[in-house]
Design a protein around this nucleic acid. Sequence first.
RNA 1: AGGGGUAUCGCCAAACGGUAAGGCAACGGCCUCUGACGCCGUCAUCUCUUGGUUCGAAUCCAGGUACCCCUGCCA
Length: 556
Amino acid sequence: MSSESTTVSSNFLRVIIEDDLATGKHESIVTRFPPEPNGYLHIGHAKSICLNFGLARQFGGRCHLRFDDTNPAKEELEYIESIKESVRWLGFDWGEHLYYASDYFDQLYQWAEHLILQGKAYVEELTADEIRKHRGTLVEAGVESPYRNRPVEENLDLFRRMRSGEFPDGAKVLRARIDMAAPNMNLRDPVLYRIIHAPHPHVGDSWCIYPMYDFAHGQSDAIEGITHSICTLEFEDHKPLYEWFLDNLPVPSHPRQYEFARLNLTYTVMSKRKLHELVTQSLVNGWDDPRLPTLMGIRRRGYTPAAVRAFCERIGVGRSDSWIDMSILEDCVREDLNECAPRVLAVLRPLKVVIDNYPADQIDEFEAANHPQKPEMGSRKVTFSRELFIEQDDFAEDPPKGFFRMTPGGEVRLRYAYIVRCTGVVRDDNGTVIEVHCQYDPASRGGSASDGRKIKGTIHWVSASNAQDAEVRLFDRLFTDPNPDRGGIDYKQFLNPDSVVTLTSAKVEAGLATVDSETRLQFERQGYFRLDPRDSLPDRLVFNRIVTLKDAWTKK
RNA sequence: AGGGGUAUCGCCAAACGGUAAGGCAACGGCCUCUGACGCCGUCAUCUCUUGGUUCGAAUCCAGGUACCCCUGCCA
């Protein structure tokens, strides 16, 4: 289908893997993409997915899809299905390797008892608030819990009773016994298990105690034989804990954690909380709103998986906080669509044109290329008649300097058809031009001047005789500020009031009545569009603008 | 008693002691029946800063500075 530039450049992870393979540390690599099923995936996750699956693919290893489902209070089946679909849509396949951290709950539980037996874990009875107070601060050591030194047998008994459901939520937790004075807060006796009497989306109600992320993640990696456990920077502080569990438990392998900088994109927000707020407050229309950076939104908008993959490759991977400009993503979309999108004529804001010297009852047809650079994509017939529609923007009574579209007295080419000269206009009561009159040059049939004169401007048009009506949704950036997320100001203040402009009287080529919603089209001189898979009906076409074409004119 | 990170062109990002890749953007120009696409050219004597080591430093050392992350029974 679509092209994909394969300019692969070096990054620190590839270097590490190449080295591990070269030295024989690993014969092949195993990575994993570990989402928590508590929300929908967004473009930031795409970076991680492309990284993990991409690395595995590049080095001939494998990548697991593992749901980090350790908190039933927040997770849902719907998210699991949605995440799987998004990963597949992006073009990756986990094959047999679909896992759930919850599949390891038995083993994790055994390991928790193992720590208790070793005197390295204890049942805490302080409240959450008391635990917080005992934890100390960034610059002060914590205080040990009075329950920290209770006998192994007592811990074991209590933990087993926690598991059997004897205590209510929050009554007790299991803690690792590490160091309340550790400068790394994660080592100040972190919570391992908490009581949550809630059904789990994957394992039902077989448990009422659930492991924390820290107690589940590294061990899950170890169970699966993950060689390179890649996560975002904020987990760097957790690495000593990650290592501590691997060192203190009889795990089958010892994965290594590596961190990279998460994706930040300008003109959007990526936090789950904010996305959720936009959706629930109806500031956008659902999780798949085409303006959202969610994978569902991007997909509905019409971005292609290949474009997203190219984007992830283009931005690279590093360890420094970075902000990627939205224009890079948009450019990747254009690059992909330019290759594969058939060209078509569509008028977004119609202005009626009458060719006065063209017979009223005459209909003609012209051959139009589906892709000027790719004859193999074929051509189609477009019909021409006395009355046409052109873009309002393509006519100017009083043209600015450098304007070379239709102007009174001037010549312009109607793409694939004829050269016409504007001879007059018709106005409404307000003086607004509502109709333009032209004379066509019969000798220019097909668009070329018989005398070889150069016509600078070529504009698109659609025959009034058989144009299809359509609604067109022009999407723009959701926010007016590159960083709506910056502190201090409510990000919603930066919502772009024109993030979607709905045009209800567009006129498109007759042939578009039957296009498939998966087809991405280029409306010549306008941008790339596709039928909205949700709202478009056979008798009521709705097009989404995926991205505009670059425009060197309005930029001036 | 704090800990962990990061600083290379407007935005990303290579470079692993041998004399600053690449992409995007920008700016010139060419081409053009899409002001698109494509093509050509320009774009860091310099790597946050100050010193030091070295024949040689973005890379090593020392001291500054700036920014990010960490005090959930979230992940």
